[in-house]
Design a protein around this nucleic acid. Structure first.
Lengths: 100, 100
DNA sequence: CGCTAGTATCGAAATATGTCAATGCAACGA
DNA sequence: TCGTTGCATTGACATATTTCGATACTAGCG
């Protein structure tokens, strides 16, 4: 396989993982959730997250699951309520630089 | 409207714009395109961008249009070929910090 | 058990992705 | 000039994924 330019850095699987994170961020409602969590000094319960969005509870829960599955937020149940907070991992740092 | 937590920063329109950029990055093929452009010292023509992807030309063109519409790349036609390069604007800096 | 908070599942509408065909655009040769 | 060739984009369509509401379900409390 002959090419004029060097092949792209990183394999496809790695790039797919990166894309999944960006995809999770590619929704205005989820950005609102993350912004709310970031502004909150402490964790925020689901009902408060939902009250800032024009969605009903199942839809909010759906978006939260996406953020959970991508490791962007973590949740903890205490009694009746579930509290969310940002998962401050490398992923959320998001200092993206192409190419590495 | 009464809430326990402060409202999210930024209005919906602004957040929608941000989401559009993340959505553009939320695809492994488009990340490959951006990585290739970033690695290339100079611009890269469409045929070379396409040869690094398991897609045919129309699909590549489609992805390039998404990146163009979001202001992430710019293109220039010279003769028969069209050359792409990164649009090094604020958008591509992508030093994301929530909340601002 | 009843009640509330949150999640999971299902289905419909909207959107995204990729392929094929058709169109533009520029270079080249008769 | 005209037709041909090759690169790139656009449009139409089929398929896949996403989004969100309605409903059903689970967990915890009194």
């Amino acid at each position: 396989m002959q090419r004029c330019c060097p092949p792209a850095v990183g394999d496809t699987a790695e790039r797919t993982n990166e894309a999944a994170i960006f995809k999770a961020l590619g929704d205005a409602h989820r950005l609102t959730i993350l912004a709310t969590l970031s502004r909150a000094e402490d964790e925020v319960c689901v009902c408060d997250l939902g009250s800032a969005l024009p969605l009903n509870q199942p839809a909010v829960s759906h978006h939260l699951k996406i953020l959970r599955d991508d490791g962007l937020v973590i949740c903890e149940r205490r009694g009746t309520w579930v509290y969310y907070r940002l998962a401050l991992t490398q992923k959320t740092a998001l200092s993206v630089h192409y190419a590495p």
